[in-house]
Design a protein around this nucleic acid. Sequence first.
DNA 1: GGCGGCGGCTGGAACGATCCAAAATGGCAG
DNA 2: CTGCCATTTTGGATCGTTCCAGCCGCCGCC
Lengths: 340, 340
Amino acid sequence: MTSIGKHATIHDVAAAAGVSKSTVSNVIRGVVGVSPETRERVQEAIEELGYRPNVLARQLVQQRTTTLGVVVGDLGNPFYAEMAKHIERASAGLGYRAMFCNTQGDEDAELSGLESLLEYRAAGVLFLSQPADPERARSIVSGRLPAVFVSCAADWGDVVSADDAAGAELATQHLVDLGHRQVAYFADPIVEDAADHDRQKGYSRVMESAGLEPTVFHWQRQPGELLRQKRDEQVGEILRNRVTAVFSSNDYGAIELLECADRLEVRVPQDLSVVGFDDVVMAGLARISLTTVRQPQSELAALAVDLLDARLQGGLEGPPVRKTLDVELVMRASTAAPRR
Amino acid sequence: MTSIGKHATIHDVAAAAGVSKSTVSNVIRGVVGVSPETRERVQEAIEELGYRPNVLARQLVQQRTTTLGVVVGDLGNPFYAEMAKHIERASAGLGYRAMFCNTQGDEDAELSGLESLLEYRAAGVLFLSQPADPERARSIVSGRLPAVFVSCAADWGDVVSADDAAGAELATQHLVDLGHRQVAYFADPIVEDAADHDRQKGYSRVMESAGLEPTVFHWQRQPGELLRQKRDEQVGEILRNRVTAVFSSNDYGAIELLECADRLEVRVPQDLSVVGFDDVVMAGLARISLTTVRQPQSELAALAVDLLDARLQGGLEGPPVRKTLDVELVMRASTAAPRR
DNA sequence: GGCGGCGGCTGGAACGATCCAAAATGGCAG
DNA sequence: CTGCCATTTTGGATCGTTCCAGCCGCCGCC
């Protein structure tokens, strides 16, 4: 084996069809002004040789690529994996190819990923999560490539996000309407980014206008997997503070919370109501049945790619743009009125 | 904005440092025989201009790329998403970049993805799931690029997989040891590939040597999302057949089964024991707590990339190789002895 | 019959790197 | 002062495309 059989070039096709390479080029690009017979002959030669144009050479001479860099925090997190899928599909739909950089929240991985994207002359960059090192990321990308932030934010690129504040208000209001007075907010366990910030604000607003006191908790960030016990302690702590409902910055954290509750034999929703944010597929499983705020994932992805495309095509100029999509509260079995 | 600020080239650096482009090339490639002072000067110019070598140009002249194509069925399926993450990491470790093609089980998407990989002159292809159209995939890839099949199989490329048969035996034996007599096998809902086949064989072997009759079920394949009701009917059907335990081809299907059971108010594990295969992260959640067979995902990924690297470096020649990794039974709360 | 116009085709210069052969430089011995 | 060798540097060919300017031959018109 190992016969990595060399690829046919445009010259080979030209020779086989008895025309010049320019004509072959005209045929594959579908320009007008090639006679039907010639076109036919060239197509046959292409078929015959299994010729595929070399994208590298094309992009080199054209001075632009159709590669979109996608920086994603953790493909193991269902929300990101689902977003990645949608981004990939949206990119392909507009003729782009997505190149993923999974950073695992690691600054070095993020930086080398970004450098690599520059070396590949990516046409633009999509951030699916707040950069771990925003300053360096900015200095590497800004001014060179257009950047779009999806479900996170920075002032040096376009932003596409769900209406985080409104979603948080829906979620919090839902808990307040159920009769909860002690409602806590749990920040994202990994990165407390702009999305997190807006959700927290929405939460606080509703709490205050209901005359209640907002309480924000932060997961104890620990390296490695040892955080389980730490988390149980934390959750035990908040329950002792007579918290009866929690709004978590996202489903990932909410499901983590359900885990803790199960271990501590705290019943959900009887002893504790939980609301998440994202509506990942898992949240809809009967065993999880998490009340949450649905983000329109595929619309977010499509809009983000459209925006990047507009920047690249020159259809959009000027300062960064900020687009917000509506969200929706999905009520499931993790919320109920507090026990008297 | 839109100032997609042109990238500096090797010429710009050469001019800035007052040397020839060859010298700059020598510096960035780290070849010996460049005087320290010159090296220093060039490094400064590179820094100054924010220069990054153009990978496209390099790969064009070198006639090889470091791009690995990865064909994956559904990034929304946690097993694939987790594998994708590991593949990405393993690739980066050996200096490759992964390019994902999410096919969503669609033949057209798969074919255009593969064509695209050829156009990018990918160095090799990794299949994370059996191709939807094996014949065409073969004709496009085989003989041109080395291919590695991870957790699936084909005779025209190297195969890296968990010991599917042994895992299936562990799982089935576990159920038999618990006292189950009516143990059914559920095939993969999406693709019944080579991995599925081996698992089924392992299941049958244990059943027969225990003097029990193997019963294989196939999920009713339906397009769209209308299958929920269909599935409930199916599961109702098998329970009426007095099946007390099910071994599912993978966790995805097993979790689907748990869903049905919950809807039908069939208690797991009291009325029905369920074992999966893969040990996706979700299976370990307290709410799911699925007994399953753990596949060593990161080892599989690392081995697959190593193998592809060996093929590319010429360290491995000859006919396709088949590597198998050991698996392990993880006992959780979805299995118990049958009720009398 | 000459000539302008046009459709169809072609040659060659880019693009930005690598890498080899050859040239420049410099030190030292005869 | 010359010749020789080792070290450092350089020019140029090359990779596979795109795309522009120009060429060729044919047709019709005056």
